[in-house]
């Protein structure tokens, strides 16, 4: 089954590259988009050196660590890239940017997106989603963060109590979980 990514400009004559996800979906994406993923770029260039690509444009690049749902989001983010990296100029813009960072799904999805961006060596994406995750946990409680990252608190109860007393100010104004 082929999953052609929505191209807003169908007349574009740029070369396409096919990516195959862990769940065997095929994505045909513009070369410019695919080249943002350094892992893909490297693979593509190695293939070129091996003279495989020269035989036809049918090269399929396998991405065994990326699920189709995640790749679709990354590609859609890629297409918006120039606007997303502009710095906000005023309050409204900053709010828009924050909203934009939130629209890529649940916090759990963010972890998937970060893992995929990391695997694909997609730097802008990684920065963007890291910031989105930081925005998400910024006002969260210690308990929430432990649960979210699957970390077991390993301080003795009296150590933790002492810590909370010492830094009481840092524990104020935390969001409800």
């Amino acid at each position: 089954m082929s999953n052609t990514s929505e191209n807003p400009n169908p007349s574009s004559s740029s070369a396409k590259i096919t990516l195959k996800t862990s769940d065997n979906e095929l994505f045909e994406v513009e070369e410019a988009v695919a080249m943002k993923f350094c892992t893909v770029k490297q693979y593509f260039e190695d293939e070129k050196d091996n003279d495989v690509a020269a035989r036809g444009s049918s090269t399929v690049i396998p991405l065994p660590n990326v699920h189709s749902a995640v790749l679709a989001r990354l590609i859609s983010y890629c297409k918006k890239l120039p606007q997303s990296n502009a710095v906000a100029d005023n309050h409204e813009e900053e709010e828009t940017k924050k909203k934009e960072r939130k629209q890529y799904g649940t916090p759990g999805d963010l972890v998937d997106l970060i893992s995929a961006a990391n695997y694909l060596d997609f730097k802008e994406g990684l920065e963007f989603f890291n910031q989105a995750l930081a925005d998400h946990i910024q006002n969260k409680s210690v308990e929430y963060v432990r649960k979210f990252f699957g970390i077991k608190g390993d301080f003795e109860p009296h150590e933790e109590e002492k810590y909370r007393e010492e830094y009481a100010w840092a524990f104020e104004g935390v969001d409800e979980d």
Binding site: L133, I137, F148, D154, Y167
Partner: peptide, 29 residues
Amino acid sequence: MCYLPLEIITAVLSRLPVKSLVRFQSVSK
């Protein structure tokens, strides 16, 4: 939930304000 490597955790935490970081010191050793 957490299959993020340490370098990613570090990158995410480095974007937090100091108040969050002072609090999150007590997440774990």
